[in-house]
Design a protein around this nucleic acid. Structure first.
Lengths: 134, 134
DNA sequence: CAAACATATGAATAGCTCTTCAACTATCAT
DNA sequence: ATGATAGTTGAAGAGCTATTCATATGTTTG
């Protein structure tokens, strides 16, 4: 923290005109609190976001969400332009982080988007910049 | 589509007991519609999610969001455990996909989380499974 | 139970990504 | 202008990831 503390002190001198040691300490403390809170969830969140950040996987959740009903693996395979195996891997990954659920019925396996997945997709839709889709 | 159409037909035979050619056609059409809608936004969305799915970058947006005010690069550097350069790259990536804004004042550069970023983080928080954080 | 079918899993590799180092631009003070 | 400071950028390599092929598992049908 030594070097970065120096720079932070100079920043505060610029921002606050006059600033004493207490100001620096206070600001450093504030930052540490911010860091602590942020750190706590970042690791698990990157796992979820990492799974969603792949075209094959995102397409599959989107399809489940758009369909609004459970879809069989063979239906999903018809949508994605990759191998059967890739779809299976993708669905496993999605299930592992809680973005889809699976249910087995006979020899068919059905998947559904979870509430979490639906919520994330909605947020993306609702906040999408103008002119970024159709 | 040939092979996957066969399997889809067998699925429908299972699900609907009796099913005629029209049923298959209908279901295939439904799927194509689902695929079209899904496809449209998947590409741009993976870009955003890909940027968020890295610990360094997610930590930085989280910090900006938690702080609730603009932060200077030197403040952000104090939070992330990587090089100055890595932080700069991370912030650029975030800015490029519209998750943070930048403003230059004097020799300091200030970043802020966008509404979109804030919305996504909120959704993650609100839908986080029990016991996955503190 | 043997064969066909639906899906999952493991290993392997090609391609992408993250971080770092080094060099660069821009701003301010002297 | 010179030097110091704040931040950015490009290149490069180690490491991660996505897809595929081959194989395995579980399920229904003859």
């Amino acid at each position: 923290m030594g070097q970065s503390e120096d720079r932070l002190r100079r920043l505060l001198e610029d921002e606050l005109e006059e600033c004493c040691e207490a100001d620096v300490e206070h600001r450093m403390g504030e930052l540490e609190q911010v860091a602590d809170r942020a750190d706590r969830v970042v690791h698990t969140d990157t796992a979820v976001l990492g799974v969603l950040s792949n075209e094959t996987r995102l397409l599959l959740v989107r399809a489940l969400d758009t369909a609004g009903r459970e879809l069989c693996v063979c239906e999903l395979e018809a949508l994605a332009d990759v191998s059967e195996s890739a779809v299976s891997h993708a669905l496993s990954d999605l299930a592992n982080v809680g973005l889809v659920t699976r249910e087995k019925r006979g020899k068919w396996r059905y998947y559904n988007a979870t509430e979490r997945a639906t919520a994330i997709l909605s947020t993306l839709d609702e906040t999408r910049p103008r002119g970024e889709n159709a």
